[in-house]
């Protein structure tokens, strides 16, 4: 097991965010973490990443396939990008900080994959939200982490970039990474998940295999209204 969380509860000031959370992250598995806005998904992910201490409970990291402490790649709401550095300098800084050996061609390859190759030498200050997010993805995937914790990585991405994102996530899973993915596009992304964790009513209301998860049964998910047909309007024209 890469990550094991037990009996997590968290308060923000006097407000209870969630309690009684237990999660296991095996290698090579993709868990989708879902729930309504404000259910505490991002907070839970930060606790799993070790960024915040839970009010109670524990998070333990196990070992990766090489018997080492697993490396954690975290992608949050913020991009971790220094606006005054170029795209390439940003990537160089983070890989060097993590002590991760990366060659020049690796940088070129990842920038190519996230379609930022032409902007490698440009300062990130001028990047659009989508470009910054793609650079952020490049940073996370370049680290080749064993545990990937992704908080709405698709934010700001267009359709083509979203496809790139999905491809990278699945490739990382196939290489044995354990992934927890918070997504706002649940219906679409559920197909790729191995398991689902659904936060509702300050608890994990559902935690199990993705196949057993029925989105329509969850109270906090708005059901799409069917389009009004001409018949329903009593045959009146639009």
């Amino acid at each position: 097991m890469l990550l094991r969380a037990r009996d997590l509860a968290h308060f923000y000031g006097p407000r209870l965010i969630f309690k009684d959370i237990c999660l296991d992250l095996p290698p090579g598995a993709l868990t989708v973490l879902a729930g309504a806005n404000g259910a505490g998904k991002s907070t839970l992910l930060k606790i799993l990443a070790g960024l915040i201490r839970p009010s109670t409970g524990s998070v333990e990291t196990g070992e990766n396939s090489r018997g080492q402490k697993p490396r954690i790649g975290y992608l949050g709401h913020q991009t971790f990008i220094y606006p005054e550095l170029t795209a390439l300098e940003n990537l160089r800084f983070w890989t060097s900080l993590h002590g991760h050996a990366v060659t020049g061609s690796d940088y070129a390859a990842i920038l190519e994959r996230v379609e930022l190759a032409p902007f490698a030498e440009e300062k990130a200050r001028g990047f659009s939200r989508g470009m910054a997010q793609r650079l952020n993805l490049a940073r996370v995937f370049l680290l080749e982490a064993d545990i990937l914790l992704l908080d709405e990585p698709g934010t700001g991405l267009d359709l083509r970039s979203s496809a790139v994102l999905l491809r990278e996530i699945l490739a990382a899973r196939d290489k044995g990474a354990g992934i927890i993915w918070i997504t706002h596009n649940l219906e679409e992304d559920l197909r790729h998940a191995d398991s689902v964790a659904f936060l509702e009513g300050k608890r994990l209301a559902f935690y199990g295999p993705a196949k057993a998860f029925r989105l329509s049964e969850r109270a906090s998910v708005p059901r799409p209204e069917p389009f009004e047909t001409r018949e329903a309007r009593g045959g009146e024209p639009c």
């Binding site: 308060f11 006097p14 209870l16 309690k19």
Partner: peptide, 13 residues
């Protein structure tokens, strides 16, 4: 006081 408020919320939540 903070602690007891927190515990009450924990029970209710």
């Amino acid at each position: 006081l903070d602690q007891s408020a927190m515990e009450r919320l924990m029970r209710r939540g």
